[in-house]
Design a protein around this nucleic acid. Structure first.
Lengths: 144, 144
DNA sequence: CTTGAAGCTATAGTTGCTAGAGACATTAGG
DNA sequence: CCTAATGTCTCTAGCAACTATAGCTTCAAG
């Protein structure tokens, strides 16, 4: 049995984050020691590793909740999990496209800034005028 | 003079967002009509367009605050604005790299899911096991 | 002159954590 | 065995950057 600190170290998840996951029901309530400290099994570590990995891949906690409920009921069809992963892939591809356009524009801005005064600064100028845009990146680029 | 709704439409910024920007001091307090409604000049529209564009490019509100104070003092050197833009570019490049790795893994997951039962589903399996990772994307991928 | 859209303020909610306070538990060293 | 340091507990509040709701007032069109 692992204490919360060891668990966090093994899964590379911070301790308050683990407690937060328990609070929102993503992790079951942990067993407790005589002194009321949380104790975790190897199974709990696997579940947390699953969550950590899915977060790294950009899944929201809601999507992870779905995936976990799928893996808790392994007799169902794989289609649902597949759909979640496909949706996630589409999202990632869209973000990639927008980020690429965005990178081009930032590079253009930086190159054009010739080290003069603000008054001539292309960074400021480009930011002030949509007409200078080369690409259609005009949708919120919020989260990976 | 524009009402807040017209301003929002022209800059493609939602009305509550404009009020929020005023509240946090990113926009100056607007003039008011006799009936206490906010009125905006063309200058205000430009400032809001600047913010909108910078947000699209992924600048934080804090970075935008800095850029705006630079553009309010056009006699200074351009170096600070350039530094902000360069930092943003570096951030975007790092996100691009991680997203690309992530996309590869999601594709692999989707391909491997052959439409069977969850018990054989690679989506779940890959997410549960860091050993399956092909790329080093194991850093928080939080925001674009 | 009426009615419906648009505006106002204020507050609370969102996502995914992170940080702090103050109290109790555990462990390593002397 | 005692103590000091570290770890853990609960609870609350805070972060970014909005978004939504409620309950009101104002404005513009017909």
């Amino acid at each position: 049995m692992l204490t919360i600190g060891k668990l966090g170290a093994q899964a590379r998840v911070k301790v308050p984050t683990i407690r937060y996951y328990e609070q929102i029901g993503l992790l079951p309530e942990a067993e407790r020691s005589a002194g009321n400290q949380r104790l975790y099994s190897r199974k709990a570590l696997e579940r947390l590793a699953f969550i950590r990995h899915a977060r790294d891949l950009g899944f929201t906690l809601e999507a992870i909740r779905d995936l976990l409920s799928l893996s808790d009921n392994p007799e169902q069809s794989c289609a649902a999990a597949d759909a979640i992963a496909r949706a996630q892939l589409a999202e990632v591809e869209s973000r990639l496209a927008r980020l690429t356009a965005l990178k081009a524009e930032l590079e253009r801005m930086v190159v054009q800034c010739a080290g003069g005064k603000i008054a001539d600064c292309r960074v400021i100028e480009v930011l002030g005028d949509h007409g200078h845009c080369m690409a259609d990146h005009h949708r919120p680029v919020d989260s990976v």
